[in-house]
């Protein structure tokens, strides 16, 4: 339990997808101009992460890892399909995003109106594939760990994109050197925010 909480806090603040790994930067810079759309995209990312990361973990553990197919038959103990993992992960993500889109559209049109436009963007958001690959690389052991990590990463992403959007809304009123306006200053702000987030580094609960 303690361990899970620790993981959760770490994945939001220290292991932040944007500030520590730059994942999902494209949509981050493209969308984060108003707080409202950023929050919408952030929620959509968190949601998709919560669904895809556990599924990808299951696929990896029971299909792809070296010796993962032992549950089928002992003959497969030496089989290593991990070279297919990139392909399978991205396929799972694309399929789930599509599925989520259809389900949301059918059962909750209001939610669809709010999130719908973001969903197609998400399939190619690096943060989603990034979480799947980090989970594989860091050898998380249980589905609870994976889900908590995915949730934390999503919330961390949401936090980052929403706060950058808030700063960018204000910054339009500032007098910035012309060549730095827009993209340039966004990078620098993100960098400064990342430095601020690094003060969480020492935290270990």
């Amino acid at each position: 339990m303690e361990n899970l909480f620790n993981l959760f806090v770490r994945s939001i603040f220290i292991d932040n997808m944007i500030f520590a790994y730059f994942l999902g930067m494209c949509s981050f810079l493209a969308v984060s101009k108003t707080v409202k759309t950023s929050v919408g995209l952030g929620i959509a990312v968190t949601f998709v992460l919560l669904v895809t990361a556990p599924v990808n973990w299951l696929v990896d553990t029971y299909l792809l890892k070296p010796g993962a197919l032992v549950w089928l038959s002992q003959d497969f103990a030496d089989l290593d399909l991990s070279y297919l993992s990139f392909m399978i992960f991205i396929a799972v993500i694309a399929a789930i995003v599509q599925l989520v889109e259809m389900v949301v559209e059918k059962f909750s049109p209001s939610l669809y109106n709010a999130l719908g436009i973001f969903l197609p963007l998400i399939a190619v958001n690096c943060a989603i594939l990034g979480v799947a690959l980090f989970v594989q690389e860091r050898e998380y052991h249980s589905i609870a760990e994976v889900t908590v990590y995915a949730g934390g990463s999503g919330i961390g992403w949401l936090l980052a994109i929403a706060s950058l959007a808030a700063i960018r809304e204000k910054i339009t009123y500032s007098n910035i050197p012309k060549p730095l306006r827009g993209l340039g200053i966004s990078f620098i702000i993100t960098g400064l925010m990342a430095i601020a987030f690094m003060s969480f580094m020492g935290i270990k609960i």
Partner: peptide, 15 residues
């Protein structure tokens, strides 16, 4: 540390 990559790019864009 990671933040400096972002700031370096910001400066490259500036230049």
């Amino acid at each position: 540390l990671p933040p400096m990559a972002l700031i370096t790019i910001g400066i490259i864009i500036w230049v």
